[in-house]
């Protein structure tokens, strides 16, 4: 065995228990010029998201008459990973993640209320330590909420995996590259519907159910956290406007 991912005491490499998520931190309204923006941190993974729109469609030929056009771009800072990597923009991985983020957001945005408009979602990874996909979806979801775009529900995402015969929640980079399966889930928590489910590597079906269940619970926990952040932010805004008095 190359690496023990779980110590005999049942602790993971970074000291967490198997079903524990990393510390979450989120901030709203971090970019002044954007219509909505947010940073989202899961442990050492840190991403920043900005939403511009709804505005008129830039490329008229792409305009949709009955719904909003959602665009998404994912990029990574050159210093976000251990080894410096170049030419991130437009490579296959970023294109794929952009697509995944866009589609999971489209499931939540009430696009039919905003016909002939365009919504731009930009996410930028400042630090990568596993789970960037989930962090990006969470950040994008908060930024959309901050922009006041009508949504059915917030989208919360979390990854889970299976290593050393144990289901693990919210994998970090070391665990992610440990060769086991990596299941990313994005959930609409109020509707209790899954908008994204991705898995690579082999996993027996009965194990998959356990891992999936764990990931689902992670999403619910993250959704609760996001809801609190949004509530806090709304309170602050209401107070600043003088609508609420203490």
């Amino acid at each position: 065995m190359a690496l023990e991912f779980i110590s005999p005491e049942g602790l993971r490499l970074d000291g967490r228990r198997p079903a524990e998520i990393r510390q979450l931190r989120a901030n709203l309204g971090v970019i002044d010029k954007a219509d909505g923006s947010a940073t989202f941190e899961m442990g050492n993974t840190k991403v920043i998201a900005a939403v511009y729109g709804p505005h008129e469609v830039q490329n008229r030929s792409q305009q949709l008459l009955d719904q909003a056009l959602v665009k998404c771009e994912y990029s990574m800072a050159n210093f976000s990973t251990g080894d410096r990597r170049r030419k991130q923009k437009g490579d296959r991985r970023s294109v794929e993640i952009s697509l995944v983020i866009r589609q999971s957001m489209e499931a939540a945005i009430m696009t039919h209320l905003l016909p002939r408009t365009q919504i731009d979602i930009f996410v930028h990874v400042l630090q990568a330590d596993g789970g960037t996909r989930s962090a990006c979806i969470n950040a994008a979801s908060l930024a959309l909420a901050d922009a006041g775009i009508p949504m059915r529900d917030i989208v919360a995402s979390c990854a889970s995996g299976y290593l050393n015969n144990t289901p693990l929640l919210d994998l970090n980079y070391l665990e992610d590259s440990g060769g086991g399966p990596d299941v990313t889930i994005a959930l609409l928590p109020k509707l209790d519907k899954i908008t994204l489910l991705q898995m690579d590597a082999k996993l027996p079906l009965e194990m998959f159910e356990k891992v999936f269940e764990l990931g689902n619970k992670g999403c619910v926990a993250i959704a609760n956290y996001m809801r609190n952040v949004l509530l806090e932010n709304t309170k602050d805004l209401a107070f600043a406007r003088g609508v609420v008095k203490v």
Partner: peptide
Amino acid sequence: PAICSPHVRPG
């Protein structure tokens, strides 16, 4: 990156 301003277009 495109996040920084409404005038920067991706790509």
